[in-house]
Amino acid sequence: MDAETRDDVRLEAVLTRLETVLHEENRRIGRDVDFDLKASNAAKSRCLYDLTQIARAVDNQSFSATAARRLEAAKGLLVENERKVGAHVAAVRAVSDLIKDAMREAEADGTYSAEQYRYAEF
């Protein structure tokens, strides 16, 4: 097997893994409470690292037309993933802010807080 063929085979394997991870994450994020986003992100990061290593090894040689199409498709999946992860992070931040606000309001319910009590003059 020549170097170009070997690079295409490695690229195809990494792209298959990456597509699988992205499809699964895009499908489950924000919908499945048991989805392990941390594990998915680790797998996605590993795929992207491997993809970067392959791209460096190729050293400006062109990939096959099939590989180029799959790279373009993976790029589209990454754009969709970025949008979904961003929406998920925004939702988590909004819920966190609601909880913080509710806690502040509960502390300011007309009773003395620990901080107010500490500085009260007797």
Score class of each variant (00 low, 15 high):
Val33Leu: 08
His23Lys: 10
Ala108Thr: 11
Ser45Arg: 07
Leu98Cys: 09
Thr16Val: 10
Gln53Leu: 12
Leu48Val: 09
Leu11Cys: 06
Ser64Ile: 04
Leu71Ala: 11
Ala120Tyr: 14
Ser96Ile: 07
Leu98Phe: 04
Ala74Met: 07
Phe122Gly: 13
Thr66Trp: 03
Phe63Tyr: 12
Tyr49Asn: 15
His23Val: 11
Leu15Asn: 03
Ala67Ser: 14
Val14Asn: 09
Gly30Asn: 02
Asp109Phe: 14
Glu115Asn: 09
Ile99Trp: 06
Ala43His: 08
Val89Phe: 03
Leu37His: 05
Glu80Gly: 04
Arg56Pro: 00
Ser62Asn: 09
Asp97Ser: 08
Leu22Tyr: 01
Lys38Asp: 07
Arg118Glu: 14
Val14Met: 02
Tyr49Leu: 12
Asp36Ala: 07
Phe63Cys: 00
Met103Gly: 08
Arg17Gly: 01
His23Pro: 00
Glu121Trp: 06
Val21His: 06
Asp59Arg: 10
Leu22Ile: 08
Gly76Ile: 02
Lys100Val: 12
Ser62His: 03
Tyr117Thr: 11
Arg56Asp: 03
Lys38Met: 06
Arg46Ala: 09
Arg17Glu: 09
Thr52Asn: 12
Arg10Glu: 06
Asn60Cys: 05
Ala43Ile: 01
Glu24Trp: 04
Tyr49Lys: 15
Asp97His: 05
Gln53Glu: 14
Gly110Arg: 13
Val14Pro: 01
Leu18Glu: 03
Asp2Trp: 03
Ala87Asn: 15
Ala74Gln: 05
Arg6Trp: 01
Leu22Cys: 07
Gly86Ala: 05
Arg118Ser: 09
Asp34Phe: 06
Asp34Ala: 14
Ala108Cys: 09
His23Gly: 02
Lys84Ser: 03
Asn81Leu: 07
Glu25Phe: 07
Glu72Lys: 10
Arg46Asn: 03
Arg6Ser: 01
Leu15Ser: 01
Arg93Ile: 09
Ala74Trp: 00
Thr52Val: 00
Thr16Pro: 02
Asp7Glu: 11
Glu115Phe: 04
Ser64Asp: 06
Leu48Asp: 05
Gln53Phe: 04
Ala94Trp: 05
Val14Phe: 02
Thr52Lys: 13
Lys100Thr: 13
Asp7Ile: 10
Ala73Arg: 13
Leu37Ala: 12
Glu25Gly: 06
Asp101Leu: 15
Val21Ser: 03
Asp59Phe: 00
Gln116Ile: 14
Ser45Cys: 02
Lys44Gly: 07
Asn26Leu: 10
Glu72His: 09
Ala42Tyr: 06
Leu15Val: 09
Tyr117Trp: 15
Arg27Gly: 05
Ser40His: 07
Arg70Ser: 11
Ala90Gln: 07
Leu11Asp: 03
His23Thr: 11
Lys44Pro: 04
Asn26Lys: 15
Thr20His: 09
Val9Gly: 00
Met103Lys: 15
Ile54Gly: 01
Thr16Glu: 14
Lys84Gln: 11
Glu115Trp: 07
Thr52Arg: 12
Asp36Lys: 07
Phe122Met: 15
Lys84His: 04
Asp97Val: 04
Leu78Arg: 02
Arg93Ala: 13
Met1Trp: 00
Gly76Leu: 07
Gly76Phe: 03
Ala94Tyr: 06
Leu98Met: 12
Val92Glu: 12
Arg6Gly: 00
Lys100Phe: 04
Phe63Met: 10
Ala114Ser: 15
Ile29Pro: 03
Arg56Thr: 11
Thr111Met: 14
Ala57Ser: 14
Gln53Met: 13
